[in-house]
Simulated scan of single mutants.
Amino acid sequence: MKSDYRRIGDFIRKVSLRNTKLDVTNLMGINIDKFFMPSVANTVGTDMSKYKIVKKGQFACNRMHVGRDKRLPVALLKEDDIIVSPAYDVFEITDQDVLNPDYLMMWFSREEFDRNAWFYTDADVRGGLKWEDFCNLQLRAPSIVKQNEIVKEYNVLESRIKLNDGFIEKLEETAHAIYKQWFVSHENSDDEKRVKLDNYIETNPKLSLKKNTVTTYVELNDLTTTTMRITGSIKREFTGGGSKFQNYDTLLARITPSLENGKTAFVDILEEGEIAAGSTEFIVMRAKKNISPYWVYCLARDENFRSYAISSMVGSSGRQRVNEKYLGEYIVSKIKSEKMNEFHNTVEPIFGMVKLKSMENGKLSMLKNILLSKLV
């Protein structure tokens, strides 16, 4: 009902507790997916006493780049105290008997909220959002009983997704452990039994995709830093340029800091025979004949390979990219076809289970979005 709508500012107040005693050391930032994450800022020589403390149950947000990112990075802290940049806003709910913090975070997670926030950004190139405009954004606040019911339903879905995420991580750890045991721990030092990587893979292989063809499109943001999953994609017309790939290819971020952070994915979300398009900011790695595509993905996650890739980066500071041709010069042990086949058959069920759990999470996320859409 319209009478349920009120200003967000009617429910919150700013908090500005500085880290004057330097007793909080966990510095965090906020990503556009609205989660706290370890900060990558260089704090050498920085006066950390000016940083703001966020306590459990409080929110922090970064209003500076809403116009550019079309999202408001805002997060609710559910763990021990952290510190954030002095440029962030920290706020809390004035009366939790009237507004549930988890319900407010659900409201912030809605796409419609981000669209409204973007609409109110200023004309600055980065598109900042004024605090007054943030406070004037509308919030539907039904009774606290109704809020608690909605939060409970949402948390059931969240818990299931987290459970699957944990299972996926364990599956990936198992696959990488097998890879390391078979191909890293016992590498042969005999130069005659070592070959260049381009004997085993192609990078950015040529694929034909007609302009204006509607196909799956994957952004760099759809790759994660810890798992093989592609977390999102859209259907759109192919406009030319960018990367093209198929199922069983591996996508490797080529730009800093995404490569250093570990953004890599295994493609298994496409229809049979579909050619997808994607960002120019990742390299497509494809297994050659008789080479396991699972081996290629595990190699892309291997610390030694990633260090080699990082060492090949060229370009100006902050916009460095991997030299694609240099990757083919990477030296690996020559692998007998029998061993490659055995590895493929051993890890194939693991990759299959990751796909199943990822599909389940996709359906659960759809249910979450449906629930969020019903908040209005």
Rank of each mutant, 00 (worst) to 15 (best):
I178T: 10
T213C: 09
T174C: 06
N31E: 10
R140F: 05
R321L: 04
M340N: 02
Y297A: 02
D69S: 13
N212P: 00
V84K: 09
V354T: 10
K55L: 07
F238Q: 07
N148E: 14
K355H: 12
T203M: 13
K355A: 15
A75Y: 05
K357Y: 15
L104F: 14
V354H: 00
L104W: 03
R63H: 08
L76M: 06
I30M: 10
Q96I: 14
L371N: 06
L375W: 00
N31F: 07
Y200M: 11
P293Q: 00
E172K: 11
M353H: 13
G328Q: 07
Y154W: 12
L157E: 06
G278E: 09
D133E: 12
Y88D: 00
W295K: 02
T216I: 04
R126L: 12
R110W: 03
K170I: 08
E158Q: 15
S317Y: 02
S185K: 13
K170D: 03
E79C: 04
V332G: 11
L371H: 12
Y5D: 03
D89C: 08
K211E: 15
E237S: 12
E342F: 08
E111V: 13
G128E: 02
E348R: 06
S337K: 13
Q246P: 00
I370T: 14
I178Q: 05
S312C: 07
Y308H: 10
I8H: 04
N341K: 14
K152Y: 03
R63L: 15
D302H: 13
W118G: 02
E158V: 13
N164G: 13
V90L: 05
N323Q: 15
V354Q: 14
E338N: 15
N204T: 10
K130Q: 09
I230A: 05
I370R: 07
Y330P: 09
D302P: 11
K244N: 07
T264R: 15
N136V: 01
Y308A: 04
I82N: 03
S258D: 10
S208E: 14
Y88T: 01
Y88A: 01
F91Y: 01
E202Y: 11
C298H: 04
M106F: 09
D302T: 02
N116Y: 04
E153T: 15
D47K: 08
V322R: 09
E271T: 02
S189R: 10
Y51F: 15
T346A: 08
L137T: 07
S85V: 05
V15W: 00
R140C: 15
I234K: 12
I291V: 15
F167N: 09
G232W: 04
I178K: 03
N261L: 14
N261C: 04
T216V: 12
G262I: 02
R306V: 15
L259H: 06
